[in-house]
């Protein structure tokens, strides 16, 4: 790492820059960054899709969404640490991980549904500020509870709980040479999981009656209610599913080399999820998928560019993501696939 003075030199040292970008544009580097970016995108999508469905249908900006991912990471971490020993093979670890993700999904879907009925439902008729304050408060309570419990159990709440992160099987931690690119197995696993979740959510929205009600309700919830459908039930289901999916995303973050279980996930994940949802267009499934890919790949490229010493400004990676958000809001405020005016909210 070089200091600010010499960093400045990087910008004026034309040959060095040319060399840096030459390395950047090498096919194997680009291919690796692209696949890693898609891996990140898969996790961002799993987390953000619930946030966008909740906003689309209910008009609720859920600031507790990041905390649900954090809960998934911690509860999943506990289950993995308990279930995996140093002798557990890679196959069993992966199977256990899938089982844990399924259990967390069921648990957190139930938790989210209860939260919607008990806390969110009574304030639908109030201004959005009430929903923001309520969900932000819930997020903070969950974060502080996690901090207290992990500290009490001798687990460092931040930057990451390494015991859980290290349950990753060797096959996913290893790098593989694919088409000349050196790719970590975990990202391929995440891409497969993200694709599976995307297909499952898409099938739910387009192939089931409830999915149809949810899509209709995202456009005009009052009209759906006037057609004889209990929209509140759909609200509960969507809030529950959104919570469950965020938690499953959190389970994936346990093995993600850039994250791992940490109370910091609450805010980190929330910010990224909001960026994805806003760029994609609030309430849009397609938009969330496209934006997750854009944010994931941009994150991967800029992290490499700004963290590997070529242009040494580690913070610029996050800045670039937020710059994308700002550009989207200026050029296309409704996002990539957002509806300009959402009725019924």
């Amino acid at each position: 790492m070089i200091g600010f003075g010499s960093s400045l030199a990087v910008f004026v040292d034309a040959p060095l820059l040319v060399d840096a970008f030459g390395r950047f544009f090498q096919p194997d580097t680009l291919a690796r960054l692209l696949v890693e970016g898609l891996g990140k995108a898969a996790i961002y999508f799993i987390i953000a899709v619930g946030l966008t469905l909740v906003f689309g249908l209910m008009g609720v900006l859920n600031f507790a969404h990041g905390a649900f991912a954090m809960l998934g990471a911690y509860i999943g971490g506990v289950l993995l640490v308990v279930g995996i020993s140093s002798t557990t093979g890679s196959g069993v670890r992966i199977l256990l991980f899938i089982a844990v993700a399924a259990v967390i999904f069921a648990l957190l879907t139930a938790f989210g549904s209860a939260l919607e009925v008990g806390l969110v439902r009574p304030i639908y008729d109030r201004t959005p500020m009430y929903q923001i304050l309520l969900t932000f408060g819930v997020g903070l309570i969950l974060e502080e509870t996690a901090r207290i419990l992990t500290s009490a159990r001798g687990i460092q709440p931040e930057p990451t709980w390494t015991a859980a992160a290290s349950t990753i099987p060797a096959v996913l931690d290893a790098r593989y040479s694919i088409l000349g690119a050196n790719i970590r197995g975990f990202y391929l696993f995440a891409i497969a999981a993200g694709a599976l979740v995307a297909v499952a959510v898409w099938a739910f929205l387009t192939r089931t009656l409830y999915g149809l009600y949810i899509r209709a309700g995202s456009e005009d919830a009052e009209m759906v209610e006037a057609l004889g459908i209990d929209v509140r039930k759909a609200f509960t289901i969507v809030f529950g599913l959104g919570t469950g999916l965020a938690a499953v995303g959190g389970v994936f973050l346990i093995w993600d080399p850039t994250y791992g279980p940490s109370v910091l996930l609450n805010i980190d994940v929330l910010l990224y999820a909001f960026v994805v949802v806003v760029i994609g267009g609030l309430g849009s499934f397609k938009g969330t998928l496209a934006a997750a890919v854009i944010v994931g790949v941009t994150d991967s490229l800029t992290t490499w560019l700004f963290n590997t010493g070529i242009v040494p400004f580690p913070g610029l990676s996050e800045v670039t993501i937020f710059l994308l958000l700002v550009i989207t809001l200026v050029i296309r405020p409704q996002g990539l696939y957002g509806i300009e005016e959402v009725g019924g909210h």
């Binding site: 149809l212 209709a216 456009e219 759906v224």
Partner: peptide
Amino acid sequence: PEERRMFGYLTVEENVRVA
């Protein structure tokens, strides 16, 4: 309703299905 309030992003058939 006044101004029809279609579900604009659903197909004609889906609009009927919801009802």
